[in-house]
Design a protein around this nucleic acid. Structure first.
Lengths: 187, 187
DNA sequence: AGAGGAGTAAACAGATCGGTATACCCGACC
DNA sequence: GGTCGGGTATACCGATCTGTTTACTCCTCT
């Protein structure tokens, strides 16, 4: 991660807060610049375009999530690592996800498959699936691929429902289904 | 459903196609009017505001989904009705959901909790959960509430992943997990 | 002492936003 | 044979959109 200038740092923080909180298309660069205490000139010098700023926002959100998830999993006892991903998700959502998955929300606003941010979104989901697969293999699952698919679906379901207040505690539901899936897989 | 004038019908159809395909905030009323072969005056006379048009779009999408789901479930043999909801979802998504759940996407773009369309979105999720709960009760589940939570989460997970092409066949994954959940509930 | 990077302030461009206004047309009903 | 609902066409409103430009200041590193 190439170090950002102080102004660029504030721009990216403001973009993250505003994009996630109000939606990408609902937030203009004028507002971001004003919120960051920066002129548009500085914003464009540092990031080049709104498109690139969106990508940077998603990339950094992904980095934060990965760091949080792996740290929580690493801190869990070996036999609990898979379930620990759901505890990590619950804690993350309490702090950072009142409006659902930032990547799913971004995808909803960026229908163009060629938009550079779409690659960041796809990356996020593929990384998570790969990570879950690794954890399944380490746990000795015989069908790690299938189990990883199931765990990913539980993660996504819980994340999206968390933003819709349709269920009281979606992560608890997904965690208990994950436990059942692990038992079914003989773990 | 109060009958729409022909022009209003075209407006609503155009709005549905454009809102779902490109995102709500990315589509202006000028574009909708042009796509429908209608002037903005007509659009505003029939719907009053973009806000109301968004609500009407979501309401009709919800109606179509409910009609489709209940018809498919009714056509299934009694012991297969719960799993039939996943088959109905699979068929629906093949035709109508290449970009994920229209309601989740709309929620991503409408952060304001007071927006009238938010009530339509909440309605859609609550109705589905209630419907799944009914099916669970009819099937004789002892813990219909918990089972309905799990099935709803599987539905949402499959729907959102379907729009992200992170898994090859998310509905198949959720259907197989639903089957496991039913077995675990003794059904 | 001087150069260059990082920043501010403010105006501008062309397009589009949601929404309104004026003026006209046509076919069905009474 | 008018009246009126539903519709068309076109122009306009102020605001906001992404992005650019010009002119200037401050700080740090050599």
């Amino acid at each position: 991660m190439e170090a950002l200038t102080p102004a660029a740092r504030r721009v990216l923080d403001s973009a993250a807060e505003l994009f996630y909180g109000h939606g990408i298309n609902a937030v203009g660069v004028d507002l971001i610049a004003k919120h960051a205490g920066v002129t548009k000139k500085t914003l464009y010098e540092r990031f080049g375009s709104k498109e690139a700023l969106i990508s940077a926002y998603l990339r950094e959100r992904d980095e934060r999530w990965r760091a949080w998830l792996t740290a929580q999993v690493d801190a869990a006892p070996p036999q609990d690592r898979i379930l620990a991903t759901f505890d990590a998700l619950a804690a993350w959502m309490r702090r950072e996800n009142p409006r659902g998955c930032g990547f799913v929300n971004a995808a909803a606003e960026l229908p163009d498959a060629d938009h550079p941010a779409r690659a960041v979104i796809a990356d996020q989901k593929h990384w998570l699936r790969g990570y879950l697969r690794e954890l399944c293999e380490e746990a000795g699952a015989s069908e790690a691929d299938d189990l990883a698919d199931e765990l990913l679906l539980l993660h996504e379901g819980a994340t999206v429902l968390n933003g819709l207040s349709a269920l009281a505690d979606p992560v608890a539901v997904s965690r208990r289904m994950a436990l059942a899936a692990l038992e079914r897989a003989g773990l």
